[in-house]
Design a protein around this nucleic acid. Structure first.
Lengths: 196, 196
DNA sequence: GGTTACATGTAACGGGTTACATGATTTC
DNA sequence: GAAATCATGTAACCCGTTACATGTAACC
C-alpha cells in the first residue's frame, strides 16, 4: 500500500494535477518511487473518495480539463500513521540476478552485451543523480527537510553505485573465459549444498 | 514474467516437488528471487500445460501426494531465450526511502526505531549470506557454474552491505537532532528545485 | 483416535502493466 | 482545419498477497 502514500507525500510537497504528478514521478520522485499516469489517476480517485485529498475548487471537473489536488488533514494523518508503522523489508526479487543464475545452468550466451547495456544505464542514472545532488543540495544548506531529502537521494546514488560495482565484477568474471554460446558441459546434477 | 523462469532454473538445478521448491525459494534461491507456495503451485500448473515441464511418472496425481517435476527440452529452450533477451532494469520502488521522504514533510516520529530494526534485519541477512559463501564457495573451487553462482550471491551480499551503510548514515543524520514528534516548522511550500 | 507435520491446492483481492479512448488547447 | 500536445481517463490482464480448504502420513 505504498502508492497512495507516495502521492500524498508528493501532494504535500506541492499540490498538483494528475499529469504534473506523473511528470514528477518520472523525475525527482523516481529515485525512490515510480508510477504510471494510469496508476496515478486511479489512485487519485480513491484518495478523493476516502476524503484524504480534494480537487481545488478552481478546477472544472471535465474530461481534458486540468484538475489540481491538495491534501486534507485526514490525508496528512493517514500518511503520518503509515510512515511510522512497522513494515518489514520486502524479500528480494531481481530479474538480472535471476538471469545470471539461469546462465549458470544453461550457458552465458548473449549475457555479456546485456550486462554492458545495464552498466551504461546505471552509469547514466548515477550521473543524473549526481547532477541533482550538486544542484539541489549544496553543502551550506541544511534544514531538516533538506537533510532528509538528501539522505533519500543518497540512497538512490548508493544503489546505483552498488549496481555499477556488481556489473563490473560480473563482466570481469565473464571475461575470464572464452565467450561460448554452448551450455557448460553437463556435470552430474550434484546437490545444492546450502539447502540441506 | 520472471517467476516461471525462476522455477525452470530451480528445476534444472534439481527436479523437485512444489513444497521442495517452496523451501528452496525460502533458502538459497531467496537471495535473488522469492515466491510463496501458492504462486509456485499456480505456476507449476501453467508450466505443465505449456509443455515446459512434466510430472515425473512415479508420482501419483492425488491431493496430498508428492508430485515431482522435471524440465522438458521446450522449457530449457524457453529459459535460454528469456535469459538472453534484453530487459530494462525495473524502475525503483522502495517503501523505506519513500517513508523517509514522507518524514521530511510530516516529521520523523517513530522512524528511528524502525531504521534500527531494519538495520538489524539486514545485518542478520548479511551474516546468513556470508555463512553460505564460506560453506558453498571455498576459494579453491572455480568451475563455471560455481563462479556464476558465487557472483549472484555476491550481488545479495553487496545489496545488504548497501542497506547497512545507508541505514547507518540515516541514523547518524537523525541522531544529529532532538528526537521531535512534531512535524518540522512549516516552511513556505517552496518549489521543488529539480523538477523545473 | 487425536494431533502434528507434510503436501497440494482454491478463492478473492489489489497493485502494476499495457493498450486504448476521449476531450481540450495550441500551432501551423 | 489538421496535426500535435496537453490532460484525463477505461479496460483487460498478470502477478503477488492473504486467507482458507483438503487430503495423507507419522507419531503418541
Amino acid at each position: 500500500m505504498s502508492l497512495p502514500h507516495a502521492i500524498l507525500t508528493a501532494l504535500l510537497e506541492k499540490p498538483s494535477s494528475g499529469l504534473e504528478l506523473t511528470r514528477r514521478f518520472d523525475k525527482s520522485i523516481g529515485y525512490f518511487w515510480s508510477a504510471t499516469h494510469q496508476q496515478i489517476y486511479r489512485e487519485l480517485g480513491k484518495l478523493e473518495q476516502s476524503g484524504f485529498i480534494r480537487a481545488l475548487p478552481s478546477a472544472a471537473p471535465a474530461r481534458g480539463q486540468k484538475k489540481e489536488y491538495e491534501v486534507l488533514p485526514a490525508g496528512r494523518a493517514e500518511l503520518a500513521q503509515w510512515a511510522a508503522a512497522g513494515q518489514d523489508p520486502k524479500p528480494m526479487r531481481d530479474p538480472l540476478l535471476l538471469r545470471m543464475r539461469a546462465a549458470a545452468v544453461i550457458g552465458t550466451g548473449g549475457l555479456r552485451a546485456e550486462l554492458e547495456r545495464h552498466l551504461a544505464l546505471h552509469r547514466a542514472q548515477l550521473a543524473t543523480y549526481h547532477g541533482i545532488e550538486t544542484k539541489d543540495f549544496p553543502p551550506e544548506r541544511d534544514s531538516e527537510q533538506d537533510r532528509l531529502r538528501h539522505l533519500v537521494l543518497r540512497g538512490g546514488i548508493e544503489l546505483e553505485t552498488f549496481w555499477i560495482g556488481w556489473l563490473t565484477e560480473a563482466l570481469g568474471t565473464l571475461g575470464d573465459e572464452r565467450m561460448g554460446e554452448e551450455p557448460p558441459r553437463e556435470e552430474p546434477p550434484r546437490e545444492e549444498r546450502s539447502e540441506k
